[in-house]
Every structure is written in structure tokens, then in C-alpha cells.
Design a protein around this nucleic acid. Structure first.
Lengths: 109, 109
DNA sequence: AATTAATATCGTAATATTGCAATATAAAAT
DNA sequence: ATTTTATATTGCAATATTACGATATTAATT
């Protein structure tokens, strides 16, 4: 099939998994780290930095924008991308909330 | 293409993205949360709980095992799955290391 | 030994993702 | 107005993922 059956999970589970899925690509991790290091960047910077086609980079940026973790603002003929700090911090909280669920000492393993 | 060009990223980026990718499916999030709540479980519990076919659950468990976040031990004719606490905590640290990268105040957005 | 029970693996169909060339769009420079 | 520059979108081919039925496999039960 290839289709994920989202109707059998909670909204929280679906949303959280979506976040993780978007972040789960090395190009998108590399893009985020580049933006963090450079403070901001334009699409072409990433094309040179990562060696992917411009169309490919643009697509990855679109996915990152879709979860709100980056923001792009038009500056003349280019678009300046930067981290959306609020969302970034919110994600960190969500991850910690997930990982802070107490792991009880297992009896079988 | 469909193939991810891993050779243009660092090992850290590829590894971290792989983790996120495995966690980026609602069934696998639901499985982890179920194991946490129940402390441990067997495959059939999850089949009933999630309403996916046994083969599908088994496949998801395999992927979770592949990143080490769960462990399965044979108990008679069933397999008892539980969280691997060390790996769980290690992942949390990795996520925090990633998110703690200082986000400089952006000048463009 | 045959049956039952629990899980894993294989094969396959349906769908999703990745990556890129080609093209479109939009703003600045000439 | 035309060209240049930067980005977005579209269409497509290759590959990956998801889900499941059918079929092992393995251990306990009868």
C-alpha cells in the first residue's frame, strides 16, 4: 500500500510523527544547521553548500516551512530564510515531554 | 529518484536523520507509548491495540529494534518487548544537543 | 507426534518520497 | 523593455515505505 493509516492514532501521535518525519532527512538537518550557523541564508547558498539541485533545495525548504520551523521573507529578488525561534523552542519542549515519560524498570529484558 | 544522497552529509547528520525517520511514523510512536504505559508488551497486544495486521506490527517493531530504542526477549512462545532505557536517554540527549544549538536573533525575518 | 499459539519473513500491490530538468514567476539591473 | 538573478512549481523517473496475506519458524500444550 504505502499509505499510513492515520485514523487509528491520536491527533497528538500523528502530529508528533509528522514533525519527526519532516526532520528525518539529512538534507533538512543540514539545512537547519547551516541556517543556525549562518544565522540566515538564501536558497542559492544551500545549493552551493549541499550540492543538490535548486529545485531539490527549494522543495526541502518548503517542507521545513510547512512545520513552521523556518520562515522565509522576500528581500528583493531573493528569499531570506531563518529559524523561527518560537517554534524551534516549542519543538524542543515537545521532544522532552515525549522523552520524559517515565520509563519503568522493565522486568523481562 | 527516491534515493537519498547520503554521501554529501556528515555521519552525524545521516545518523540523526535516521533516528528521526524511524520515529517519524504514528504507529511507531503509538507502540513506544504503549510499551511505556504497560511497561512491556508482546506483539499480539499491539495487534489488538492498534488494529494493524500482525505482519505490520512485527515490521514496525523490527525498525524500532534497529535503532536500539526497544529490546525484545524471548519468553516461551512470545517475545517480550520493552524500552531500552540507556538508548532512550541517549536519544533525548542527542535531541537536546541539536535543539540547544543557539538560535541567533534573525535580522531578516 | 500433532496441535496450538506467537512471532518473523517473504512476496506483492499501492502509495509516498526523492531528485532533477524544464519551465514559470518575480524583482533588480542594464 | 530586455536581460539577469533568485526562487518556485510542474512533471516525471527511480526508489522507498507501508500494509497485508500467505507462509515459515519455534516453543508450549495436548
Amino acid at each position: 500500500m504505502g499509505i499510513t493509516k492515520t485514523d487509528m492514532y491520536t491527533d497528538d501521535q500523528n502530529k508528533f510523527a509528522s514533525l519527526l518525519k519532516v526532520l528525518g532527512h539529512p538534507a533538512r538537518i543540514a539545512i537547519l544547521q547551516y541556517i543556525i550557523n549562518q544565522e540566515k541564508c538564501i536558497c542559492n547558498d544551500l545549493v552551493e553548500e549541499l550540492g543538490l539541485a535548486q529545485a531539490t533545495i527549494s522543495q526541502h525548504l518548503k517542507e521545513l516551512k510547512s512545520i513552521g520551523i523556518i520562515q522565509g521573507s522576500i528581500e528583493g529578488k531573493s528569499v531570506c530564510y531563518c529559524i523561527e525561534e518560537k517554534v524551534w523552542n516549542q519543538f524542543q519542549e515537545e521532544f522532552n515531554a515525549f522523552f520524559n515519560q517515565a520509563v519503568k524498570v522493565n522486568q523481562c529484558c
